[in-house]
Simulated scan of single mutants.
Amino acid sequence: MGGKITYFFLATVLVLVFGVVAMEGVLLLLTGEPAPMGMGAVAFLLPCVGAWFLWQNTRFARSAQRLARELEAEGGLPANELVRTAGGRIDRDSADEVFARRKAETEDAPADWRTWFRLAVAYHDARDTPRARKAMQRAIALHPSLRLNRRRSRGRG
């Protein structure tokens, strides 16, 4: 629950900053001089781009959370089988072993969103965030009831 509150708080602060930057952009546009008008246009566009990224990230997080809840209800969430050091860090050899199993599982059933979800968790545990995100995006695209992301998955051959 703490993560959701933090995310909501930071997203709210970001939206407020977007508003301030957009207002400054409008004020610069109203000066009538070319250089400030150009800076005002850019200052007005930046919050639009930032809002789009915030929306995409929020949609991704909500979809991933929905998959996690569904997989938990099915009893299919991966068990925490990783060995940890005394300091609480994940042992590299343990993460590699779990990752190898998850990868083989995904190769055996590439059309199952559940295997891609578990592979994303394994990538995350191995601290490979870009691949974890791509695997989670694949899981979301394969899930039959998440229509928001179907458009994107259709475009990829």
Rank of each mutant, 00 (worst) to 15 (best):
I140Y: 06
A51M: 12
R138A: 01
V26K: 09
D108A: 12
G3P: 11
F99V: 01
R147A: 10
A43H: 13
G155Y: 08
A73H: 06
K4V: 15
L146R: 08
T106N: 08
P47Q: 09
M39N: 04
A73M: 06
V49W: 13
V21I: 15
P34I: 05
G25M: 04
E24V: 14
F53L: 11
E105D: 09
R66H: 08
L27I: 00
G2N: 10
L77Y: 01
K103S: 07
A35E: 06
G155I: 04
G157C: 04
R69E: 15
Y123L: 00
Y123Q: 08
I140R: 03
R147V: 01
V83S: 11
A35G: 04
G87E: 14
A95K: 00
G40S: 02
S94H: 07
V49H: 04
W113E: 11
R92N: 05
E107L: 14
G87H: 07
G38T: 00
W52M: 04
R66E: 05
R89C: 04
E74G: 05
R150Q: 13
I140N: 06
A73L: 07
R101A: 01
A132W: 02
V42C: 12
P34R: 05
V21T: 11
V83P: 03
R66G: 12
I5E: 10
I140F: 03
A43E: 14
G25Y: 13
E74L: 14
T106D: 03
C48P: 00
P144Q: 08
H124S: 13
L27A: 08
L10P: 02
L119Y: 11
L14N: 09
E70W: 11
P36Y: 00
A111E: 14
E81V: 12
R138N: 07
